[in-house]
């Protein structure tokens, strides 16, 4: 039998990198987000809306310069791990390594601990753990870690619905528009809207999360879906919600759709609402 070389990845390196990603995600916005702000500042029709956008840009500048979190809700730590099938994690348990990284990152980075250990008791764990970890095994010998600091206010306005196939594209559109309108100012617009269509109940939610993590302005490889992204973004911005819900032409900075195969009876659609503090960073080890 042919032997494949296995590459070792140390758990302590994963911990260190996760800690760094937690802090950097909370202090520094990616260029796709800052670029989108610059663009909408010239397009926003409402004077109040422009004033809000300017405050958001100034806030991002302060956060980066002073290395303080741009928002006090420093998020759920959502961690996507892609483990190469030829990578061997040594010196510890992967889940523990990630949680330790989150704990250190949040403690040393002056980030808020927002996780309660039990949904009924609601006692803060004090460490911002457990992280919400999604692991997949992929070809190769590397480990890719993507960390998203996901705000609770915007997450709370996310929605999922099992539509009927006969609802079609129009049904999907109406559901997305309804979710954005209902989210309103609670989700801190301007938003990045992540839409997942297809799969089943949990796959659609995961697709929506992945869509929200895709860079603003990137387009789905499927031309039909790419066109739908453009159309829906235009329609979302016609809702008039505007920056902070105070009215305006910028309700969303971006709208991304991810799709997957589904059942003959099903048309699941999930809308993951991401606020303007669109914070995520990745590293490959």
């Amino acid at each position: 039998m042919q032997q494949t070389a296995v590459r070792e990845v140390r758990a302590e390196d994963i911990t260190r990198e996760v800690a760094r990603l937690c802090q950097e995600a909370n202090y520094f916005l990616d260029e796709d987000v800052t670029g989108a702000f610059t663009k909408v500042l010239t397009l926003e029709e409402s004077p109040v809306g422009r004033d809000v956008l300017e405050q958001i840009v100034e806030n991002a500048r302060i956060a980066a310069n002073e290395q303080v979190p741009m928002c006090q809700d420093t998020g759920y730590a959502v961690v996507f791990v892609e483990v190469g099938q030829d990578a061997h994690i040594v010196g510890g348990d992967l889940t523990e390594a990630i949680n330790k990284g989150v704990e250190i990152g949040y403690r040393e980075g002056y980030l808020r601990k927002s996780i309660v250990g039990d949904p009924f008791e609601r006692k803060n764990t004090g460490t911002n753990t457990p992280a919400f970890i999604h692991t997949t095994v992929v070809p190769g010998d590397r480990v890719k870690v993507t960390m998203a600091a996901k705000g609770g206010g915007s997450e709370n306005t996310s929605q999922l619905k099992m539509l009927k196939p006969s609802d079609g594209v129009e049904g999907v559109k109406q559901f997305v528009l309804k979710a954005v309108a209902e989210a309103g100012p609670s989700a801190c617009p301007p938003l990045v809207v992540g839409v997942g269509v297809g799969g089943n109940f949990e796959i659609s939610a995961l697709l929506a999360k992945k869509a929200a993590l895709r860079p603003i302005g990137s387009r789905n490889a499927n031309p039909f879906v790419a066109k739908l992204e453009e159309e829906l973004l235009t329609e979302v911005n016609k809702l008039g919600v505007g920056p902070q819900g105070l009215g305006g032409s910028t309700t969303a900075l971006g709208l991304n759709i991810e799709t997957f195969a589904t059942h003959i009876v099903a048309l699941p659609v999930a809308v993951n609402i991401q606020c303007h503090a669109s914070r995520h960073k990745a590293v490959t080890l």
């Binding site: 958001i56 806030n59 741009m70 809700d73 902070q244 606020c275 303007h276």
Partner: peptide, 13 residues
């Protein structure tokens, strides 16, 4: 009243 959501660093000042 509303303050700008997500502008925590600016408001802290």
């Amino acid at each position: 009243l509303a303050s700008v959501g997500g502008a925590g660093a600016l408001l802290a000042k």
